[in-house]
Design a protein around this nucleic acid. Structure first.
Lengths: 224, 224
DNA sequence: AGTTGTTTCATACGACAGTTTAAAACATGT
DNA sequence: ACATGTTTTAAACTGTCGTATGAAACAACT
């Protein structure tokens, strides 16, 4: 069993087998769920033999964990980078709207980017329920860093904010963002007659406006 | 195959087989997912033979659909009733906070009520992803009636609201509510050290405050 | 050329899934 | 008591799943 020393083509359809497996698994797991995606389908989509997943990853579970971990770090980095960028561009004193908008776009970015993986949301939503990989790694690798960075940035954008309420406020923001991605997916799968069309970027703008007002309701508290 | 004419004991452990199957299936589907819950387990939990699910429901899929439909109507009724009650108690002019609070409690009520079914959220979250029963019935039976009733009530509580934004605002509210239920579930499954304890009723109160401010940001628009 | 270590392949294995079947048990009306 | 229709049961059927195996193909180095 060899792990290192690959050719690392990194482009084109002749990537190393591990990468092809990870890519195929990411898509199929997200589309059909952990149980719904068979090892045979994954191997077939990756253009290799069934035994490859056991040979390289030691089993279906390990492959899934690896797929998941790959998404986690990228998700966290995108969010952290978006926050840092807003902070640096505003010399440490960003407007609340700018911060929210940048965070929101980084948050839902992976879910709408068709070129990379628009199945990520389903993959993540499944994981929130099925818990194949322990919750702790998600908390430690994504939630905690994100909450910490975003909380700090919020304090700078809204100096009057009560610190103890900040995690809750971020939860509210994240909840709205996740939900509109779900709604968007629902719109794509059914003909919602008599209901208005759904535009994601428009929804994000409104979340920014909505949440900015909600957050300010907590910032103005201290001044009264 | 007989469907009608049961004893309808309606209490105690000697309910008709169909009901026992539905109850057991509801719990096991929610706990382990559609694939994770085997017909054998369900029948065993219901205290009857494996063939009963095919005999009475015509297959695992049909049983699942029936479980789901049973939850849908009850969910919708709880929400509609909460809205109507607030409207009647305030003679048609409810305060925004009262309306939001009542709706929020009706919304998350089924998810926290341990006596009835605290697995409902997982069941519903799964369904949002896996789509075993067509989305249309969910849209028609729950979303549309809820949006219609809540939208009308919102207009009465906030006369200045722009009507076209109302669906979006309700989505935001629902997104926050669903998310805190998820967060609550995460807290219960891991030891979130260094993170504050999570109280659902407290979170709901804050959602009311947060969303009331957010909604008013759209109500005061017309007056400017 | 030959040896060695790695990767691919077709195939087989055991387990468990949902469903079907046919007989037994039961209830009901005559 | 009998006949009739309904429900329950145990066992078998068919298919698919994840994994294991051992041989073939390949690459690299002596």
């Amino acid at each position: 069993m060899a792990i290192s020393g690959q050719k690392q083509g990194n482009s084109g359809p002749d990537k190393p087998v591990q990468d092809r497996l990870l890519d195929a698994a990411e898509q199929l797991f997200a589309e059909n769920g952990f149980d719904g995606a068979s090892v045979r389908d994954i191997a077939s989509a990756a253009g290799c033999n069934i035994a490859a997943v056991n040979y390289y990853f030691g089993g279906k579970d390990k492959l899934y964990t690896e797929v998941w971990r790959r998404q986690l770090v990228q998700m966290r980095d995108a969010r952290l980078q978006a926050i840092e960028q807003v902070l640096s561009e505003s010399n440490g004193k960003p407007s609340l709207e700018d911060l929210l908008k940048s965070f929101a776009n980084a948050f839902i970015g992976p879910f709408v980017d068709e070129s990379r993986s628009r199945w990520l949301m389903r993959l993540m939503a499944r994981e929130m329920i099925d818990q194949h990989v322990h919750v702790n790694v998600f908390v430690e690798e994504v939630i905690k860093p994100t909450m910490s960075a975003m909380g700090g940035a919020l304090m700078k954008a809204c100096p009057g904010l009560e610190e103890s309420k900040i995690p809750l406020l971020i939860f509210f923001l994240a909840g709205q963002l996740i939900h509109i991605v779900h709604i968007k997916a629902m719109y794509e799968q059914t003909e919602m007659a008599e209901m208005p069309a759904f535009d994601l970027t428009d929804a994000v703008e409104n979340i920014v406006k909505f949440s900015a007002a909600g957050i300010r309701a907590y910032a103005e508290e201290k001044t009264e």
